[in-house]
Amino acid sequence: MDQQTKELIENNINTNEVCLFMKGTPDAPECGFSMAVANMLKILEVSFKSVNVLSDQSIREGIKKFSEWPTVPQLYVKKEFVGGCDIVKEMFENGELKKLFEDKQIKYKK
């Protein structure tokens, strides 16, 4: 991954409390897994930044190297990699996602 891509990824993660790297956008997702994670964040009314990896091939490949995680979507909360769809879904269902937002002092619908 080139330095410019790395800096772009880091900038998105570092300047947004909740950042979702996804295929498409929250209003027009282009992947069921991306749609699922965006919808969970919408249900909790969490303010988040989305990055459409389909609009930039270098980010699409770079985020996988950056996180050492092979798939998209990828959720970051306060600069910490949380996981992909399966992990976020499990955390959503068992209440861990709400606890994470509480612990990180991020507003969400209780």
Results as ranks from 00 to 15, higher is better:
1 M>P: 03
3 Q>F: 15
4 Q>D: 07
5 T>H: 00
5 T>V: 02
7 E>F: 13
8 L>H: 11
9 I>V: 02
9 I>E: 00
9 I>L: 06
11 N>T: 15
14 N>A: 06
15 T>D: 11
15 T>S: 14
16 N>H: 13
18 V>P: 09
18 V>Q: 04
19 C>Y: 03
19 C>L: 08
20 L>A: 11
21 F>L: 03
21 F>M: 02
23 K>S: 06
23 K>Y: 15
24 G>S: 11
24 G>H: 15
25 T>M: 08
26 P>M: 14
26 P>E: 11
26 P>Q: 13
26 P>F: 15
27 D>C: 12
27 D>T: 12
33 F>Y: 15
33 F>N: 13
35 M>H: 15
37 V>M: 11
37 V>H: 11
38 A>F: 07
38 A>R: 06
38 A>Y: 08
39 N>A: 07
39 N>T: 12
42 K>I: 06
42 K>F: 13
42 K>H: 13
43 I>M: 14
45 E>D: 09
46 V>F: 08
46 V>N: 08
47 S>H: 12
47 S>N: 07
48 F>W: 06
49 K>V: 14
49 K>F: 06
50 S>A: 11
54 L>S: 08
54 L>N: 07
55 S>E: 10
56 D>A: 01
56 D>K: 00
56 D>H: 04
57 Q>A: 06
57 Q>R: 02
58 S>C: 07
61 E>L: 07
62 G>C: 00
62 G>R: 00
63 I>K: 00
63 I>E: 00
65 K>I: 13
65 K>N: 09
67 S>G: 02
68 E>N: 15
68 E>D: 14
69 W>Y: 06
70 P>S: 01
71 T>H: 14
72 V>G: 13
72 V>M: 10
73 P>C: 12
74 Q>N: 04
74 Q>Y: 01
75 L>R: 11
75 L>D: 09
75 L>I: 06
75 L>F: 07
76 Y>W: 09
77 V>Y: 02
78 K>P: 01
78 K>A: 11
80 E>L: 04
80 E>G: 01
80 E>W: 10
81 F>K: 04
81 F>C: 07
82 V>W: 02
83 G>H: 07
83 G>E: 02
84 G>Y: 11
85 C>A: 13
85 C>K: 11
85 C>D: 07
85 C>P: 05
85 C>G: 05
86 D>Y: 15
87 I>K: 04
87 I>S: 04
88 V>R: 14
88 V>M: 09
89 K>V: 13
91 M>N: 01
91 M>L: 05
91 M>K: 01
92 F>S: 11
92 F>N: 08
92 F>K: 10
93 E>W: 09
94 N>Q: 03
94 N>C: 05
95 G>K: 00
96 E>L: 00
96 E>F: 00
96 E>Y: 01
97 L>C: 05
99 K>C: 07
99 K>M: 05
100 L>R: 08
100 L>D: 05
101 F>K: 07
101 F>A: 14
102 E>M: 11
102 E>A: 06
102 E>T: 09
102 E>R: 15
103 D>G: 10
105 Q>F: 12
108 Y>C: 06
108 Y>K: 03
109 K>G: 04
110 K>D: 08
